[in-house]
Amino acid sequence: MTLLNESVRREVRQALAAMTEPVRIVLFTQQEGGALECGFCRETRQLVEEVVALSDKLRLEVHDLVADQALASQMGIDKIPAIALLRDERPQPRDFGVRLFGIPSGYEFGTFIQDLVLVSQARHDLSARTLEQLAALTGPVHIQVFVTPTCPYCPRAVLLAHRLAIASERVRADMVEATEFPHLANRYSVYGVPRTVINEVIHIEGAVPEAALMDELMQVNDPAAMKRLRAEWGL
């Protein structure tokens, strides 16, 4: 049975028509009966395959997290199912650091489709102020946005994080479906979504506007502030 019905397939086809460059979807999963616990590996693979069939600008590359550990680690993939979206440029695909951990279902399905278009167009639509701030970053930034599939506010938070990753080589940004990775939700005390976690210790509740998120994010450039936050989180 297909996951996407005909009307959704038609809408997705229409949305993907805006793609300019091809996108390589790198899916990390495991075979049926694999050693790791993975509630939605099979469905995620099926979903991605169904989406790839809807545009000739999409390519799919499937890896096993355990067998392809070196590549996974190089790409910052440590849990499954995981999706990395790369702009399929020549000679090398370009990895902006856009990641989705957990199945992009519910409201996050729309995020996944919008991500494909944004990565394809290498488009971020960020303000001049944000771009200035990103240019001033002195170290790596890892954004994790915790979501649930039933959260209508979450796509805005995820898409903002992904647009920041597209705009800056220093930023990588993950969507993390909280109910599939409860150990992470516990680790970061996530009781509400969207929760944006930056470099482990900067926590932002809700889908905040771009400028507000950037003001919080820029604390990564302040060693004293980061030291204080790390101490607060016992790190």
Partner: peptide, 12 residues
């Protein structure tokens, strides 16, 4: 807020 206070049951 975000530590048990929520405005969105469907989210949380």
């Amino acid at each position: 807020l975000g530590r048990g206070v929520s405005y969105c049951a469907t989210c949380d």
